[in-house]
């Protein structure tokens, strides 16, 4: 399919970018790496009149260390994957980034784009998500169940990341966990005139052990069919603090809220890891896709959680 026609806008500052956004709100799409937007446009999921190419906003690129860690929304996944600093202090994020798509797509794809990744993507007939009134995966319902399939958000949720959002009204900052709605066709709390500009990792989240486990059929390219991120800090062989999040099995990436209490103060053994796995599996609501049954994927949330918890607790 050909790319629909659009006007390309290329701002070089955030101010310029948000001005365009409010000017054309509702009729404009942000292009960061383009690895998600361009295929979606070819499939006519969107046909905006304007495309805002933010790749020339230099200040949104790169990782800055300070009281907290600041990652520009335009930082490529390759940079995150290979950052020595992140690998040492926030390993779960570097690992999650390294599993996205393929090396070429990680060179182009950005962390901001990964967070804002559009749910569901295939044009095999119309559904609620696009022009239709029927849901292929949960027939009979009127809620959109389009699944969120980004790899880095569960890691970022575990790290208690915050994001900075810019608009012509100024900057606001929210915890990432408040960003997602859990509804497939309006999955993120981002106004049409807003831009995600930065991601912040609190210093308090540094130096947790971190593990990301991803279910996919191929060793590369595939989106996650289920994903589990765990971060954990120990003292004296016991869990001091831990967080767990899952992705690709709900319309939003989700923190498993009860997991920290379950783990805190305990020495992790197989039984405990299994119990946490059961908990995570209960939260997962995977739906039909063209690969692997929902039941299997929920089962893998259980297995992967158990494995990730054990690995994080015992190296």
């Amino acid at each position: 399919m050909s790319l629909p026609e659009f006007r390309l806008l290329r701002p070089s500052t955030v101010e310029e970018a948000v001005r365009y956004l409010s000017q054309h709100a509702g009729n404009i799409r942000v292009l960061a790496g383009g690895t998600d937007l361009i295929p979606s446009m070819r499939q006519r999921l969107f046909e905006p009149e304007y495309v805002l190419d933010i790749r020339h906003i230099g200040e949104l690129k790169g990782i800055r260390q300070g009281a907290e860690v600041e990652i520009g929304a335009l930082t490529s996944l390759t940079v995150i994957e290979h950052s020595e600093f992140l690998r040492r202090h926030y390993p779960v994020l570097a690992e999650a980034a390294s599993t996205v798509a393929s090396p070429l797509l990680r060179n182009m794809g950005t962390i901001g784009g990964n967070i804002c990744l559009v749910t569901w993507r295939k044009g095999c007939g119309f559904c609620i998500k696009k022009d239709g009134d029927l849901c292929h995966v949960a027939p009979g319902g009127s809620k959109c169940w389009a699944v969120f399939s980004g790899d880095t958000p569960p890691a970022l949720l575990c790290l208690d990341a915050h994001i900075e959002i810019a608009s012509s009204a100024g900057l606001r900052r929210i915890p990432l966990r408040e960003f997602y709605t859990g509804i497939g066709d309006s999955y993120r709390r981002l106004e049409a005139n807003e831009l995600v500009t930065r991601i912040f990792l609190p210093a308090a989240s540094a130096d947790y052990r971190g593990i990301y486990r991803k279910l996919r059929i191929r060793g590369s390219i595939d989106y996650p069919l289920a994903g589990v991120a765990v971060v954990l800090k120990r003292s004296n062989g016991h869990v001091k603090d831990a967080r767990l999040a899952i992705t690709a099995v709900n319309p939003a990436p989700m923190l498993i809220k009860a997991a920290p209490q379950m783990l805190e103060g305990k020495a992790v053994d197989t039984n405990l890891a299994e119990a946490v796995g059961d908990l995570a599996a209960k939260t997962a609501k995977p739906l039909t896709t063209s690969a692997l049954t929902p039941e299997y994927r929920r089962e893998m949330i259980r297995v992967f959680t158990k494995r990730a918890v054990l690995a994080a607790a015992n190296n």
């Binding site: 095999c124 007939g125 059929i217 191929r218 060793g219 590369s220 390219i221 063209s290 690969a291």
Partner: peptide, 21 residues
Amino acid sequence: VWKDGMLMNPGLLEYRSPSST
């Protein structure tokens, strides 16, 4: 993979030929 005669994986992302890894 079919659903009511509709191919559910008509692309190289969803129709999974092995990758080099």
